[in-house]
Simulated assay, not measured.
Amino acid sequence: MPYVRHWLRYSILLFASAIVLGMTAAHTKIIQPHDLDLDRTIQTNTRTGWLNHTMEAVSYCASPVAGVLIIAVWCGYLLFVRRRPIAASATFLVVAIGWNSTQIAKAIVARPRPPREFMLDPEIGSNSFPSGHTAFTVAAMVGVYFLLRESRHRRTVVFLGVLAVLLVAFSRMYVGAHYPTDTFGSVLIAGSAIFFVTGVWHAWLLPNLDRLPLIGALLTRFGLEEERAELEADRDGYGHPAVPGPGGGGRHRRHAGR
């Protein structure tokens, strides 16, 4: 996981921007009519039988049930098969917190869902702003990028990640579960949470993984010290260690916590 300078500033700025957008969209007439018009345009002009099933399937792939399964399998593979506990921990935090941060914004903004008569499969869950499905996709794609950002595949990951986010966002509008601003707000909220995670990770979590109650022993058993030593041996272009020590030094290391 990279270290981001001014992570707290960026996190607060993105979160505040998302809340302002959500409150404006939910409680004023500035955005709401345009949101609904765009939703209805998508649903009127693009809905067909085969595409209905396709978009419902896309939407399901980022649903809460699918999201939990993806995180469990992904992080389990990194920990138990690849024996990379640092990568597994970082990935879990990025995806889980980036995804679930939407619940805070949902409670603050309290925007109702689009009219139920426009929904293919009426939502009975939480508020509309922001889209949890889209936030999960954003967080998952960022997690993949963090793992592969030093490889030759990083540009491909960015390209495919953007496509995945756009596809899931479109599917949520297509099935009638969200407004356009809900999906855009998800990018801001997930981004805010991920910036925050990167800061906390380097300031406290990474140097103290082995000291975490219960979890520390598990991570140590599956190769924590070996992966830490490997990262410390991987130096950046300036010869700095990759991982900060217990005292918190080296927060600006480019390769820390890959």
Rank of each mutant, 00 (worst) to 15 (best):
S151D: 05
G161E: 03
T137Y: 02
L147E: 05
T156F: 08
V162S: 11
V168P: 10
V158K: 03
L163C: 14
V168N: 09
A140T: 02
V165Y: 09
A169S: 14
T156L: 13
F146N: 03
R155Y: 13
A164C: 07
L167C: 12
A164V: 04
R152H: 08
L166I: 10
T137F: 02
F159V: 15
R154Q: 10
V158Y: 07
A164R: 04
F159T: 12
R149I: 02
V157H: 08
G143E: 00
L163K: 08
V158Q: 08
A139F: 07
Y145G: 00
A169E: 10
F170V: 05
L148W: 06
T137R: 03
H153R: 14
L167H: 05
A164W: 00
L148K: 14
G143W: 05
V162L: 15
A164S: 13
V158S: 02
V162D: 06
R152D: 03
G161A: 00
R154A: 11
R155S: 11
M141Q: 14
L148D: 12
L148N: 12
L163W: 12
L163P: 13
V157I: 11
F170C: 12
L167M: 10
A140P: 11
M141K: 00
A164G: 06
A140Y: 06
V162E: 06
R152Q: 13
G161Y: 00
V157E: 01
L148V: 10
V157L: 10
L163S: 11
A164T: 14
G143I: 00
V142T: 08
R149E: 02
A164E: 01
M141V: 06
S151T: 12
G143T: 03
V144T: 14
R155Q: 08
H153Y: 13
L167A: 06
G161D: 04
A140H: 02
R152T: 04
